[in-house]
Design a protein around this nucleic acid. Structure first.
Lengths: 183, 183
DNA sequence: ACGCCAAATGTGAGTGACTCACATTCGAGC
DNA sequence: GCTCGAATGTGAGTCACTCACATTTGGCGT
């Protein structure tokens, strides 16, 4: 739905940069969408044409299909929970964000604000559904599939938001989280 | 912070009833706080004196200490994830709302709205912290403790919001979810 | 280079959640 | 009944977000 032309891409980039900048300097809540827009050289209206909510500037995650595929590729005779766990571990390499620095800034901003944490959970709901659907297609009961996906995703999200050691890369934190779930 | 006198308790009850009523009939988003307040015979201002946000009318969970205690009571030599899982299963009996038709209404309203689901997660964050703190006190690394708590809570929340069979009681749904995590 | 035209952006007005400073009313105890 | 504090009301304001409509701009073919 947001604009996609090269010009629009540039505008979008300026908005993200301006937003991260202001959020880091003066906090998320203390920053208005109008300020972000002005710093990016546009109006509030344009801000909302590119992002449906203020949250959306820092919350995004287009990894759903990759992860769901990786889960589907795990042995079908494993219990669903273990299948999701291994699938997410396997997908880690592909999802690894090359341009880690922006991702790190986003994680830091999100971790500092409860409302943003909630927004992240809302966003992961679509990933949860994608994983669950894949399992259901293999005959796993819907409830079991949803629960397994939610547990693994919840663990990863919690790990990312709780991480304190800045030297460990994001992927390492996630891997560690999934290993904690190994019984 | 909200008022606590008998009179205020009655007002609070009227607000909850009016809110559930309107949310069920015309949807959460389509209902304004002013409408809820009016239906409860009160002004919007008073609504916000009793509930910090519109969400708060349907989202609450005062179970933290009970669950954390139950987790702490599990054998210390278990891996943290298994300890949380068994602790939550053990706490189920105590937390089980005996008569709660209101709880069922709330779950239904929340399940129907993405923003409310996010709000629930925000609320469970304090429970997550309570459980994690208990494990950390026994020497479990913070990251591992947080991840274990988040996985189990995420699983339970997902199960409650995904449940379709209205005949199964809430406690049964949660028990089933925790069993899915048994490896 | 030039101009066309759709896509991108701006304007202005509006709604709803939430807040604050201050005035008013109600109800439990004397 | 009266009083004092808690509970509620008033009015005005901020900010996220939306809509209908006017305007500009950049990528495209020629």
């Amino acid at each position: 739905m947001p604009p996609t032309s090269p010009r629009a891409q540039r505008t979008r980039g300026r908005i993200v940069d301006a937003a991260l900048d202001l959020f880091e300097r003066q906090g998320y809540d203390a920053t208005t969408t109008t300020q972000v827009a002005a710093a990016a050289g546009v109006t509030q209206m344009t801000f909302f044409r590119h992002f449906p909510t203020k949250d959306a500037v820092v919350v995004s995650d287009p990894y759903d299909p990759l992860i769901a595929d990786a889960v589907g590729a795990q042995p079908r005779d494993l219990p669903p929970f273990e299948r999701v766990r291994r699938g997410m571990l396997a997908a880690l390499g592909d999802v690894a964000p090359a341009d880690d620095t922006t991702a790190l800034r986003r994680v830091a901003v999100v971790a500092a604000n409860p409302r943003l944490r909630a927004a992240v959970v809302l966003a992961t709901a679509t990933t949860e559904r994608a994983i669950a659907d894949r399992l259901v297609a293999d005959g796993v009961p819907r409830l079991d599939a949803t629960v397994a996906a939610a547990a693994c995703l919840g663990a990863c999200t919690a790990a990312l938001l709780a991480r304190t050691d800045a030297r460990v890369p994001l992927a390492g934190t996630v891997a560690r989280a999934l290993e904690v779930l190994d019984a």
